[in-house]
Design a protein around this nucleic acid. Structure first.
Length: 483
RNA sequence: GGCGGCGUAGCCAAGUGGUUAAGGCAGAGGUUUGCAAAACCUCCAUUCAUCGGUUCGACUCCGAUCGCCGCCUCCA
């Protein structure tokens, strides 16, 4: 089956057809590194990483590029406040960014590009834009002339005359048209700046993405992702300046935009002050819980942040992890190299295999339909139930373990793009902890043999307080960490 | 004012022009267990904001209304 994606440009779902057979270019707007990113900012990082990983799963050779905006007003202000250079601020929060995404289970991009490393490329584009009359220089600033780009407004469906220019922010009187935007900003005293044909200054906000996406992915590439608030003006401006300078018809072919994370019905943002950083949240919830919380909603819709929602996701994540670990315990040494035809088939085995195969197809079909992760996760839990039932009914035979290993392989496949199964063992040296617990379980076993229930229960209750859950079964007692 | 989106059970959330409207959380009952935990089984929306229209048939298509949100300014 083919993959369909909702394209903001057309406002419709479209079949994904790569521009280039060799690779799929994917550009995502990254962070402005003046502070730790908050959990609203985390949404595009997570969802576009999942989309990219699903494309890889489906065999596409994805080249994934993310910019790091390391020069802008906020960084400059922050540097002034702290009495350090802009570069020190940027470096600090770039490092923090890498730490945080790693903890969130986000795979690194193939290319991270810093705006300040691409000033020559940016200047080249601006020169070109001036040469074709798409931009004009005033006293030290350079502006893009939106009137010169006929397709302006195509992405955001806005008409220039409908914009309420100046309603909330005063229009710069140097501009020919209120919608014109700055490509090069004249340096103010004490600000970091670079030499240019128009004097010392620094790049405008939108131009870096054009310069870097075209440098690493070419004039036309497949996907461009970002938050819905970037549709206008940022992405609209990117299209204008990129196509005006390169002459391309298509800049990015598919525009993907994620919905917001709301706090009590209101967009979470730094300026509103209603945010919580990703690192703060990760002190409370494991990454698998946070990822599940996001991925149980479709990437284009809004999510309302809530503690209840996160707590529910934690329980959900635990159910998934428990089943996965149970499966893993049963299948050491089995390859999962399971061919239904070559095995002796019991009706039960056949039925199980058939059900999992069907659910597998449905799960993948959900992902193919505009990356419907909530639908896919629904199927994942259907699989969880089937597996638990199958194991409950007894799975001791060789071929049954082989089919379980096959299912485990499926779960591993899904998790290669979803990343919601917590396979960790709790952060403490598991080998030694397990040895200690074996001794404790042995002691309790003796107590139970003597039917000394009060002491056996007291021991178990004490462990529960310490965050350890014991589970008795005919096969013996196992222990695990409480989430 | 212009543009875009959303409104499905107690909560979160998929989905479809037509047999039983996924899944998760919470809740109820049961199986299992010394008691638990985990797991499994059963139950939990005659109904998809409201009102009209198209249709043999709509929750799904169209229109209107109400409510909520976002963009038009830096913003994921």
């Amino acid at each position: 089956m083919s993959i369909t994606v909702f394209n903001t440009l057309s406002g419709k779902k479209e079949e994904y057809k790569p521009i280039n057979p060799d690779y799929s270019g994917f550009y995502v707007c990254g962070p402005t590194v003046y502070d730790y990113f908050h959990i609203g900012n985390a949404r595009p990082f997570i969802v576009f990483d999942v989309i990219r990983r699903f494309l890889i799963f489906r065999g596409y050779n994805v080249r994934y590029v993310m910019n790091l905006t390391d020069i802008d007003d906020k960084i400059i202000n922050r540097a002034k406040e702290e009495g350090v250079t802009s570069k020190e601020i940027a470096d600090r929060y770039i490092n923090a960014f890498f730490e945080d995404i790693q903890k969130l289970g986000i795979r690194p991009a193939d290319v991270y590009s810093r705006a300040t490393d691409h000033v020559p490329e940016i200047i080249t584009i601006i020169k070109k834009l001036i040469a074709v009359d798409a931009a004009y220089a005033t006293a030290g600033d350079v502006f893009f002339d939106v009137k010169q780009f006929s397709r302006y407004g195509q992405l955001s469906k806005k008409k220039l005359e409908d914009l309420q220019a100046g309603k909330r922010i005063a229009v710069d009187e140097l501009k020919k048209n209120p919608a014109d935007f700055v490509l090069w900003k004249k340096a103010k005293p004490g600000e970091p700046s670079w030499p240019s044909p128009w004097g010392n200054g620094r790049p405008g906000w939108h131009i870096e993405c054009s310069a870097m996406s075209m440098k690493f992915l070419g004039n036309s590439f497949d996907f461009h992702g970002g938050g819905q608030d970037l549709i206008f003006p940022h992405h609209e401006n990117e299209i204008a300046q990129s196509c005006a300078s390169s002459g391309c018809d298509t800049f990015a072919k598919y525009w993907l935009h994620n919905g917001f994370l709301d706090m009590k019905g209101e967009k979470m943002s730094k300026s509103l002050g209603n945010f919580i950083t990703a690192r703060e949240l990760m002190e409370i919830y494991p990454a698998s819980t946070i990822r599940l919380f996001y991925l149980q909603k479709h990437y284009r819709g809004p999510i309302d942040f809530s503690e209840d929602g996160l707590n529910a996701a934690r329980t959900t994540a635990e159910r998934l992890a428990l089943t996965y670990k149970k499966l893993a315990r049963l299948t050491p040494g089995y390859t999962g190299d399971f061919e239904m035809e070559s095995r002796q088939q019991t009706p039960r085995l056949k039925e199980f295999h058939h059900r999992i195969s069907t659910l597998d197809e449905e799960l993948i079909a959900a992902m193919e339909d505009d990356f419907n992760t909530p639908g896919a996760i629904g199927k994942l839990f259907d699989i969880v139930r089937e597996v638990n039932k199958f194991i409950d009914e007894g799975a001791a035979e060789e071929q049954e373990k082989e089919v379980l290993a096959w299912v485990q392989g499926k779960l591993d496949d899904y998790d290669r793009f979803l990343g919601v199964i917590d396979k960790s063992q709790g952060g403490i040296d598991h080998e030694r902890m397990d040895a200690v617990m074996r001794a404790v379980i042995k002691l309790r076993h003796s107590l139970r043999k003597e039917k000394n229930w009060p002491l056996a229960d007291q021991l178990r209750d004490g462990l529960t307080e310490a965050g350890i859950i014991l589970e008795d079964s005919p096969a013996g007692t196992t222990w695990r960490w409480r989430k």
